[in-house]
Amino acid sequence: MPKIGSLDDLKKIRESALRDLTIRRSTGTKITVGMGTCGIAAGARETMQAILKELDSREIEANVATVGCIGMCSKEPLVDIEQAGKPRVTYANVHPPMVPRLIEEHLVNGRVVQEWVFGRVSDGGVAVPTSEES
């Protein structure tokens, strides 16, 4: 049976990754993208891909993970950005065209993009909605 893909190709991944490791700037950041049925239907996979692409082109190191539905389905795609020592920020309705600005302002410039935020998780772990959500 004709096969696509090979062990050699997989080995090349390791070589490329090792080379790549040295040039990335570490940010101590974790980015989480909602990927429940609601998220998927709203385009979260495309949002995730836009985030990965932006991180790659800026050579920024950040952990990117997906999670299931957290219940705010109409706000999907939801993107959480968590950085050491700072409260977790949840952005709502994040579509690919918004990603470059999000990464630039939040990760590079250290400024939360308030107009896209859904809520901030304070140190006590309680989500605080922004004024238009109350």
């Binding site: 062990l7 991944i13 990335r24 790659d56 990117v64």
Partner: peptide
């Protein structure tokens, strides 16, 4: 093949 790295690592993801 990846040794200590995992598929989620930034450098591996892209490739």
């Amino acid at each position: 093949l990846l040794g200590g790295m995992s598929p989620g690592d930034a450098a591996v993801r892209r490739w």
